[in-house]
């Protein structure tokens, strides 16, 4: 497989606020046409990292390039060529959808303006609502407007900061279809999220915890790297089993899904013994299950979260 050219290349980005290191030597590598998921718990430094890539924050150390432009020196050129969707809706609520897009079109000097705005409205199905004030839109429509505004100038790189927070499942699905369509046209996307199903729609994921990258690769790679074993216990509707299992050595996580229990551990042998001890004499079927991304992330959160003072 031939390597596509790098769109984001960052090494050892570090950002401190006061004496708190929010981003700690984060390196990123995103190739053209890729959709890379940027994951991590709240406050892990995702937004700060993205802001450094857009030139909105100056890194304390480390360096990086977006689309070949230096993130500290060529911020103007980066701004012109990327689309950045902020976590919080940051368009004007007292302007209509169309007025917001016209504002953006003028800022990027898109000519003829009306044509660009019309096409973007049409592409994202906003035409019928173009006169509505942004402040009166629901979460899903606001997000669609924000996406429209940041892809109108046809950027080569899209940075999305938790774009689907507070958006219903259908709108999320449509949003991701849109992202994949754009990626198919050669757009590169770095998207931060903490929805597992969204992480699974990315080509690659990067997991960051307390400012440090703790896992990266494709979903399969990340799951494999974790070396977790998952056992599925069917017919275990009894809530008391959960507590019993949690007390056993070798059991890291127990999660109940209706009548089945997912029991996760790092040591396969120890886990199996622990489960057998608990289910003894009960009518429960134990089988090997697939470790999910969520299991991996909870494991990562516990592992790296505890290391902090």
């Amino acid at each position: 497989m031939t390597e596509a050219p790098a769109v984001i290349e960052a090494t050892d980005l570090t950002k401190r606020f006061g004496d708190k290191t929010v981003v700690d030597h984060v390196s990123l590598d995103v190739r053209q046409g890729e959709i890379v998921g940027f994951l991590g718990p709240n406050g892990s430094g995702k937004t700060t990292t993205i802001r450094m890539l857009t030139g909105l924050l100056t890194p304390d150390s480390g360096s990086g390039h977006c689309l070949g432009y230096d993130i500290t020196r060529d911020a103007e050129a980066i701004k012109r060529n990327i689309g950045y969707m902020t976590q919080r809706f940051s368009f004007y609520e007292d302007l209509s959808i169309r007025e917001n897009l016209e504002f953006v079109a003028r800022l990027y000097c898109l000519r003829p303006m009306a044509e660009h705005v019309d096409r973007t409205l049409d592409d994202l199905g906003l035409t019928s609502r173009q006169g509505q004030l942004a402040g009166q839109l629901s979460g899903g429509w606001k997000q669609r407007l924000a996406l429209a505004a940041c892809i109108m100038h046809q950027p080569k790189l899209l940075l999305l900061d938790e774009p689907t927070a507070g958006v219903d499942p259908q709108a999320r699905r449509e949003f991701w279809d849109q992202i994949h369509r754009l990626a198919g046209e050669g757009l590169t996307v770095l998207v931060s999220t903490h929805y597992m199903d969204e992480a699974e729609r990315c080509h690659r994921i990067i997991y960051i915890s307390y400012g440090k990258v703790v896992a990266r690769g494709t979903v399969e790679e990340v799951i494999a790297q974790s070396a977790l074993t998952t056992l599925v216990l069917q017919g275990a509707g009894d809530g008391r089993l959960v507590d019993a299992l949690r007390r056993e050595p070798g059991v890291d996580q127990v999660a109940q899904f209706g009548n089945t229990l997912h029991v996760v551990g790092t040591d396969a042998g120890e886990l199996r013994q622990a489960v057998e001890r608990v289910v003894q004499g009960r009518d429960i079927r134990v089988s090997e299950g697939e470790t999910s991304l969520e299991d991996v992330f909870i494991r990562l959160m516990e592992q790296y979260g505890e290391a902090r003072p």
Binding site: S90, F91, V104
Partner: peptide
């Protein structure tokens, strides 16, 4: 305060 500044700064103006 309305959060629109981040967007304004992220655009080439």
């Amino acid at each position: 305060e309305r959060g629109t500044m981040e967007n304004l700064l992220a655009m080439p103006v």
